[in-house]
């Protein structure tokens, strides 16, 4: 993917750019809002990563400008401010996601991947399928290899979230936000507990679909062809 990174702190910029490059992406970098805006307006990107606090214009100003000129590229805003009003301001300016500094690199990568895939999420699928796992959204039923699986409502939402992002790493924070609508760290093992319950129901008698990615999060994906 081709990514734009606008970040004024040289060390943070180098750290993120190196990580993204190692993950196989092409990264254009800008250290000032002015250069960032120039690149954002003139080059096509898959995802843009904008630091919120930049020497003028700041991240939100860049975002408003490119959105006003019709650029629909997904944008991830990096910020040190964490409260609801800031987040609302970011989304109102046209941001697609919001990541609070400091963050683990795995979190950033997972969110960038999720953003790049976002258009697929908008499709009005009524059935989600990964390998032999099948979810019918209208009937609220789940089957694995044809056998029905009974899920609690929250487990159902968690599985739906994972299935819609099959093959992508989702982080604990993404799950807290997407499944529980918790925009804070509840300091509990609620995610881990639900994942292990879900595993017990989904992966009990069949090849595992839900995998833990160390230091990053979880991924739901079909077993490797070799293993299948």
């Amino acid at each position: 993917m081709k990514l734009l990174l606008v970040e004024d702190d040289a060390e943070t910029r180098a750290y993120i750019a190196r990580g993204l490059t190692e993950a196989g992406h092409l990264v254009d970098q800008a250290a000032t809002g002015k250069n960032g805006l120039f690149l954002a307006a003139s080059e096509p990107y898959d995802v843009m990563i904008l630091d919120r606090m930049l020497p003028a214009p700041d991240g939100l100003a860049i975002l408003r400008t490119i959105r006003a000129s019709g650029v629909k590229t997904p944008v991830l805003i990096l910020t040190t401010r964490s409260l609801v009003a800031d987040r609302v301001e970011g989304f109102e300016a046209g941001a697609d996601d919001y990541l609070i500094k400091p963050f683990a690199f795995a979190e950033l990568l997972a969110r960038v991947h999720a953003l790049a895939r976002r258009p697929a999420l908008a499709t009005e699928a009524t059935v989600l399928e990964v390998a032999d796992l099948r979810m019918e959204l209208l009937k609220r039923t789940v089957t694995r290899a044809g056998k029905p699986i009974i899920l609690q409502p929250r487990e159902f939402r968690l599985l739906e979230f994972l299935m819609r992002r099959a093959g992508q790493v989702v982080t604990r924070t993404m799950l807290l936000e997407g499944v529980w609508d918790f925009h804070f760290d509840p300091q509990t093992s609620v995610v881990e507990t639900h994942i292990s319950r879900l595993r017990a129901k989904i992966d009990r008698d069949a090849p595992a679909l839900i995998h833990t990615v160390r230091g990053a999060g979880y991924v739901l994906r079909a077993p490797e062809p070799a293993a299948a």
Binding site: L83, V84, A85, F182, H183, F184, P186, Q187, T188
Partner: peptide, 15 residues
């Protein structure tokens, strides 16, 4: 109010 903050406050009390 601020939903996230109120939830966080209650989470902290529960924790």
């Amino acid at each position: 109010g601020d939903r996230a903050l109120l939830q966080q406050a209650v989470s902290n009390l529960l924790a």
